[in-house]
Design a protein around this nucleic acid. Structure first.
Lengths: 116, 116
DNA sequence: TCGTTCGATAACTGATAGGTTATGTAACGC
DNA sequence: GCGTTACATAACCTATCAGTTATCGAACGA
């Protein structure tokens, strides 16, 4: 998982329109017109968002007559999620308790050191 | 979890310098000078990155004499990870098999409908 | 009190993002 | 062939980003 991939993935996810497009595509393929419909935004604007998503590898596009069906691609999302996993322990309650325990042990150590 | 939070979180994570800073802070608190050291970048540039991280709620800062120790904050990271969870099924192999199974069932249903 | 260290802020620059309107292009339906 | 539909591309605008240098401010240490 190269840094440039994470750059592009997170940058793509930083826009609410693009997240909404992904949410829509999670329910199945859709073409550009269908994807544009819910937004008060010009069609070229949506095309730009799709290009960002495609360059980030978050979607792929095929061709069906005049239509360009878009499909969500899991890979980069998975990589980003794996990157976040590194931080799971930060909000994991069990770790928090372990952390507290370690803190406690350190304190006791100091007390013992002082006693000795 | 409001959209604006996700916007700020993902935008903050889209920069490799900021991700490196978070990685460093995951190992414990550090002040600005310590955080700046590994980078070939001016101190004001690091201060700007820290401000982005702070505004996104990914870090917090306290005060210790002239020093401003930074600490990583789990909450927004957790929210972002939870957002990504919605897509886990996309890359989960078991789900893929389940998906195939559902597809198969739908096909059979149609066949049965035709039969009936 | 005076120099030093830590860090923030200001002012500037070039690049990029996100939107617009206008136009181009490819495939379809008739 | 010809209009229509679906989408991409171009040109443009404004705002924001990521970096710079220069400067300021606050707190420490002698």
């Amino acid at each position: 998982m190269r840094a440039a991939h994470l750059d592009a993935t997170f940058a793509a996810l930083a826009d609410p329109t693009r997240r909404a497009i992904l949410a829509r595509l999670a329910t199945g393929e859709a073409n550009v017109t269908e994807l544009a419909r819910p937004f008060e935004m010009s069609q070229p604007a949506i095309s730009k968002h799709l290009k960002v998503l495609e360059l980030a590898g978050l979607i792929s596009r095929s061709r069906d007559a005049q239509s360009r069906p878009c499909r969500i691609e899991a890979r980069r999302l998975k990589e980003a999620a794996e990157w976040m996993e590194r931080y799971r322990s930060l909000w994991n309650e069990r770790f928090d308790r372990l952390d507290g325990l370690l803190e406690e042990m350190k304190t006791k150590e100091k007390k013992n050191a002082r006693k000795a």
